[in-house]
Write a protein that binds this DNA or RNA. Structure first.
Length: 472
RNA sequence: GCUCCUAUCGUCUAGCUGGUCAGGACGCCGGCCUCUCACGCCGGUAACAGGGGUUCGAGUCCCCUUGGGAGCGCCA
């Protein structure tokens, strides 16, 4: 049997972190077994589905690199097929028309709740043979009244449901459109899906789907229900309370590498001994859906950040430069004017936790900064620093070859002649040239900023100190 | 309310068929390195939800309680 897994999001928003992990696990399962990964868009809810959401999901999948072998299939394109199946169930008396109005159903539920019973359809239209005037009927599936449904879940093990707990669910609305539980079953069947890997929240739907499947004379696929991903505060992830931080694309905008997010996600509910870092290839070979945990996990932003930094450090510099260029662009910086972006990326690789941070801390390489960081200037651009600064300035101005090595020598020589520790000269110099107290090593920093800009900025710092002195 | 799922450091987790000083990672704290920041290195912090069983022995198996989550829609 060839393995066929699928990811079936409904396009009612962007691709969120939980959906991304579900997609990843399903994708990994398919890849590991040399199977196929199918993408299906569950857009039968015409009210809430949007084309923008479809695009956002596809964009998210592409950015993560979770390419699909088939699809995207749209359920809205398959209505004829669903109608056919519904008709067949009706013909075989495995489904029936229900003429209850929404009001009646609501009243029934309210009564049941009042009696502390589980709200469920009581089957009052099961035996009805005549239509009701003025009511467009829905179609209900005739669920077996007794016996049990056993879900053999790859993650949960055997889960048993009593048929008596299940009611006759609606498979077609009064306008004839099919509902979720019907479309899922038909699609998984038609698309010969062998493994349904999805969120835990669907576990309770599974016995209903199995019953429909059996009524259709089919055998159920293999199920694997993934534990939920909770927000940092342990609450359910929601756009309303957690904002954009649940959107995959938002992570891209905030300077995360897709491989870091993927690595972070794969460790949520899954592990392989003590290993923390996994390349995509390793995930594919090491991942086993059976090893997935069964309890929910909360997302931990600081660990994601750590992984992101790890990947920024480990990646080839070209790869980082490519991403850095995107984020510099967002800051209105054109990296073609200024130092080689490869060199910038190289020196910043181990200092930035995100690419956004890297872009921000690299801006002074490309243009003069507006003003000195207040704290840095206060601490380092003091009158006592003026002499050292002036001395280095002259030494730097005299340099014929603007190389990191020569710059380093100039700084060392200046501090030695003044009998100062190197830091006493380097720190003011750093602030003068970059506007801030933390940069790559002083020689590289000056080298990348360039001779002309360095001298100009040192003069500016000297003016600043003089002004400060006269003000005092 | 009913049904289902679930429970190891703050967080992610290891702990296969019962015997470990309950391990790793992130974070946090301290130290080293050092021109700053960061990296790196060294060290520290911190957990088996509670209660019953089974057993010579339970984080591990069973039951109960409590906590958390999901579902109970003409949403998916």
């Amino acid at each position: 049997m060839t393995i066929r897994a699928r990811f079936a999001p409904s396009p009612t928003g962007y691709l969120h972190i939980g959906g991304a992990r579900t997609a990843l696990f399903s994708w990994l399962h398919a890849r590991k077994h040399g199977g196929k990964f199918v993408l299906r868009i569950e857009d039968t809810d015409l009210e809430r589905s949007t084309a923008e959401s479809v695009n956002a999901i596809l964009e998210g999948m592409t950015w993560l690199g979770l390419e699909y072998d088939e699809g995207p299939f749209f359920q809205t394109h398959r209505f004829d097929r669903y109608r056919e199946v519904i008709q067949r169930l009706l013909d075989e008396d495995k489904a029936y028309y229900c003429y209850c109005t929404r009001e009646e159903l609501e009243a029934m539920r309210a009564e049941q709740m009042a009696r502390k019973e589980k709200p469920r359809y009581d089957g009052r239209c099961r035996a009805r043979t005549t239509p009701r005037e003025g009511v467009e009927p829905v179609v209900r599936f005739r669920n077996p009244a007794d016996g049990v449904v056993v879900v053999e879940d790859l993650i949960r093990g055997k889960v048993v449901f009593q048929n008596s707990e299940l009611d006759d669910l609606i498979i077609a609305r009064s306008d004839g459109s099919p509902t979720y539980n019907l479309t899922v079953v038909v699609d998984d069947l038609d698309m010969t899906v062998s493994h349904v890997i999805r969120g835990d929240d669907h576990l309770n739907n599974t016995p209903r789907q199995i019953n429909i499947l059996r009524a259709l004379g089919a055998e159920p696929p293999v199920y694997a229900h993934l534990p939920m991903i909770l927000a940092e505060d342990g609450a359910k992830l929601s756009k309303r309370v957690h904002g954009e931080s649940v959107s995959v694309i938002q992570y891209r905008e905030e300077g995360y590498l897709p491989e870091a997010l993927l690595n972070y996600l794969v460790r949520l509910g899954w592990s392989h001994g003590d290993q923390e870092v996994f390349s995509l290839e390793e995930m594919v070979t090491l991942f086993d859906i059976k090893d997935v945990n069964n309890s929910a996990s909360s997302i931990n932003p600081s660990k994601l950040l750590w992984l992101n930094q790890h990947y920024i450090m480990q990646s080839p510099v070209e790869h980082i430069a490519h991403h850095l260029s995107y984020h510099l662009g967002k800051l209105d910086i054109d990296p073609s004017h200024g130092p080689d972006i490869l060199e910038v990326a190289k020196v910043q690789q181990e200092r930035a936790k995100t690419l956004v941070e890297m872009a921000e801390m690299s801006s002074y390489f490309y243009h003069d900064f507006a003003e000195f960081e207040e704290k840095a200037a206060k601490k380092h651009l003091r009158p006592v620093a003026a002499e050292g600064l002036a001395k280095v300035r002259d030494a730097l101005a005299a340099l014929e070859d603007w190389t990191a090595e020569n710059i380093y020598q100039a700084v060392v020589t200046a501090s030695e002649t003044l009998e100062l520790k190197m830091g006493k000269v380097a720190q003011p110099l750093r602030v003068a040239v970059s506007g801030r107290a933390a940069t790559p090593s002083i020689d590289i920093t000056l080298y990348l900023v360039g001779k002309e800009a360095c001298l100009r900025r040192i003069d500016r710092a000297l003016d600043y100190i003089a002004q400060r002195e006269s003000a005092a």
